[in-house]
Write a protein that binds this DNA or RNA. Sequence first.
DNA 1: AGGAAACATTTTATCGATAATATGACGGCG
DNA 2: CGCCGTCATATTATCGATAAAATGTTTCCT
Lengths: 334, 334
Amino acid sequence: MVRMADVAREAGVSVMTVSNVLNERLPVNEPTRARVMAAVEALGYEVNLTARHLRAGRTDTVAFIVPSFHDYFGEVADKIAPLVEADGRHLVLERTSGSPEHEMAALSVARLQLYDGVLLSVAGLDRDQLDRVRTSKPIVLLGERDVPDRFDHVRLANAEGARLATAHMIEHGSRRILALGCTFDTVHMMTSDRRIGWERALRDAGLDVDARYVVPISTYTPAAARDALLGVIASGLPFDGVFAVTDVIALGAVAALAESGLRVPVDVQLAGFDNLDMASFVPPGLTSVDANHEGVAETAVGLLRRQMAGWTGPAEHVVSPVRLVVRGSTRGGA
Amino acid sequence: MVRMADVAREAGVSVMTVSNVLNERLPVNEPTRARVMAAVEALGYEVNLTARHLRAGRTDTVAFIVPSFHDYFGEVADKIAPLVEADGRHLVLERTSGSPEHEMAALSVARLQLYDGVLLSVAGLDRDQLDRVRTSKPIVLLGERDVPDRFDHVRLANAEGARLATAHMIEHGSRRILALGCTFDTVHMMTSDRRIGWERALRDAGLDVDARYVVPISTYTPAAARDALLGVIASGLPFDGVFAVTDVIALGAVAALAESGLRVPVDVQLAGFDNLDMASFVPPGLTSVDANHEGVAETAVGLLRRQMAGWTGPAEHVVSPVRLVVRGSTRGGA
DNA sequence: AGGAAACATTTTATCGATAATATGACGGCG
DNA sequence: CGCCGTCATATTATCGATAAAATGTTTCCT
């Protein structure tokens, strides 16, 4: 391992001069600078980031902590990365599996030290647990759960998105619309907020809200969604529309409908949420609530940047607006 | 910031005793141990991982460096994470955008210091560039490019997978099969290796290899794939099968075929590569070459683990076997 | 009872950098 | 010609932990 001291010896200067050359902190005379650079080249020296971090208290790294690496979070992470890199910092992803323990561990003093700032996609922690986190590290929370006021937070207009999607299907003739993957939870979370929007659309149209049309699923995978919807079909419960709580769930629904010989959108209209990349490509094109990943990424990184720059004003709670992207899976589409 | 020294003072012992209690390195008498633990609790002490890293030379962290966070790499990362965590280490993901510069930077001395080991999914670097990397850090390379012998490397049986998929479509009646997203590159890379398998299947069946049936695409996105295939259709080039170089490409193909009124698998059979989660759910079910993500993850982590344990024997070059998963997009399927 | 072995705890040195301060050389000015 | 300010570089202290060696205490055996 080549250390700064080795470079200093080779160049016949002190360690601080090497440091000053490399970090451009104090000015260094050109001939000296050149000698140092030559020594750096000759020895192939590179700074020890750990030592720098320990001394300087800065890592130039931001962490994005997600429940899982794929689908939604992978897409958002790809939007966040360039924004973080634009400030000359690195982005790393860590995974929690969505478990409260892992999320809490990620927010532990020990782990937070490793980063200049943290973006956390909250899936498992509730408001009370988050309130126990005491830290002055820049942190921005993302996700649909309730969080303490003192944290910057970015969430989506869940109910409004669900309402838009459901109202759109009603407008085009659906009368019995499933809320696939939704729940009746009372705390704020994605699955219940979106159910509320679904209810609102039904009520606005003067339709009944029937609890049997809220179909929970065991895990948030297409496979579980497919099974759940096949169960509904087998039960004989009549329906002519499906609002899927996410596009991943909608993908399972697409499969179940296709297997059952139900035509989309003729027999059943289908809409999802998130507008993942795949939504445009799964035939006949998946109508979906666009959550504006890019905008969410910009907002979240902006808030984090503000904190890292030393801002200490009140936290902000942003609700990112949504819009409906109509495609072939509903009758308003092409 | 609470330091070990604060805990030591609180407990009336030396710093080393605190360290010994927390790391269980040297034995500590029970009463002392209890006092230390009480002080740790009282002050809410947590170790400074950076200081530990600097001194102990170990981070307990493994990095998986990928071209992008979504689709294939997200899915593989989710398989790798539990394996790394099983050894008590953390996994972090970093992104290179597939550019050689970023990949080289990730392999720089400075960045490698941050991890106990690195899994790198090579997309941009060629053999010569990789050969310039000089390090003793545990590194395992993944991906379909050629790499220097001295690196552990896991790749897929690309040609064989493509051959299986193509042969399967031939067996079920296709005679003019596009190689969508393939290339005629001469160096080993995914797009050319898979083209070779496609060619082999055609030759084995006594069919012509027509260069017009190899359709390159500008970027590896479904959108570009869709456009490319629409272009082929517009050109009037007759075809009755599509081998898509990846499932992501196949998804674009599905969209293009649906838009053009071509029925899958009646008019055109379609097969992809990677067997992503979505493959089972995109109607009519996507026939795909299963690359055994789980197995690749296990092999790669196994090799890395071996290196981290001190192994210095010759590097291993594993070609992970593949198998064809037949679904509704080809005529052998359900 | 004397001495060595066994054990618990502390001391010292170090990982590799950077912030803050000190030193020394040189030029300008009265 | 001598004093002082300016600029370049060097010294010192420190970030927070751990490895290795040193110290001190107890135990046990003959």
